[in-house]
Design a protein around this nucleic acid. Structure first.
Lengths: 185, 185
DNA sequence: CAACAGGGAGAACGCTCGTTCTCCGTGTTG
DNA sequence: CAACACGGAGAACGAGCGTTCTCCCTGTTG
């Protein structure tokens, strides 16, 4: 088995297990069992568990933002792209096995003890925020709206994760529209 | 040492350590060391670690909501009470050792594996939401505003926790005011 | 064929941790 | 004083886990 393939299999298993059960409750042996990648190979690819965790967060970040932008950019009109963010959140919340935001969860679990994890989480949130900023700017809306939309999105993710409902996405979308029409020129 | 006193000391230590470092990274022996309550006594008071965790979240919930309401209710005018929620969040975020919302963090860490913790978290968030609902209703504002304010507050807590800044509270307050004037009659 | 590099299975190691147990000292009660 | 309940200190136990090591098989190279 190719080294790149083993790496992907390991990350697939890591993503499913870490996201579904939390990071500390998943052992390296669980990763081996779920991925079929031997411990020896796992430790060649990721010399310590923390590096596997960071790699999991990194790959998920890339994919998550790709999915978001692909969905949002189906709309040509920059004014429609902001509500589309919340529509995509609703789709995400409805997925099987949704358990909240992987980065918020990881931060709650390891933010205080793992610098690598904390850094990944901050980078992901910063990237999301700056994507929102670009949407706000492209729509000709005032910059301070960005932070407000960001808070609504974060609140929706947390609340959907805790309650298991998709409704926060619609609530946040509605609030976003009101904020836009209150502040758009 | 009185049993009630030992219980409070144990909970004091639990609160400081669990909140500051995460729950799984704190051992019962750490609690003993920080509280001065022997292991024997700890296990008399809380037959398993999970029960100590739940008791920590319960006591913190009561105190957190007391502090919030005490601060909010210094304002007589029901219209001023909603912004006051966000002002109090700003004070909370500025406290030494602030590391985000204890319930969101606990949920990220243990929500998937501990039913007791998940239940506590949902109860706390439900209580907070229904307090907001009462403020909205007392101010004569439309019910759907509640969910929007709730999302702003949750987003602010998460973001303040991750970034270490108090600014999300002010952003959320500003957004809340705009939503109120957009929807107030 | 001979030598060897690579990798798999899984045992082993060392540490942490939740929980329980042992031993001992102290204070109280009759 | 005698008997005993209570609680503290900390050892002990058993499980889980991150990480490494051993042993063996297989395929490749000269």
């Amino acid at each position: 088995m190719d080294s790149a393939v083993a790496r992907e299999k390991a990350l697939d298993a890591a993503e499913e297990l870490f996201y579904g059960r939390g990071i500390r409750s998943v052992g390296m042996d669980d990763i081996r069992g779920a991925s079929g990648v031997s411990l020896k190979r796992l430790y060649q690819l990721f010399p310590a568990k923390e590096q596997l965790v960071v790699a999991y967060l990194e790959r998920r970040d890339v994919r998550w933002r790709e999915r978001l932008t692909a969905s949002v950019e189906r709309h040509e009109d920059p004014r429609q792209r902001i509500p589309a963010v919340f529509d995509w959140l609703a789709e995400w919340f409805a997925e099987d096995g949704f358990r909240g935001c992987a980065w918020i969860n990881s931060y709650g679990e390891l933010g205080a003890t793992s610098e690598g994890v904390a850094t990944q989480v901050r980078a992901h949130k910063e990237a999301f925020r700056s994507y929102l900023a670009s949407l706000v700017s492209d729509a000709g809306l005032p910059g301070p709206l960005t932070g407000q939309l960001f808070l609504l999105a974060e609140g929706a993710m947390v609340t959907a994760g805790i309650t298991g409902s998709t409704h926060p996405a619609a609530e946040a979308r509605k609030a976003a529209e009101l904020l836009i029409s209150a502040q758009g020129h």
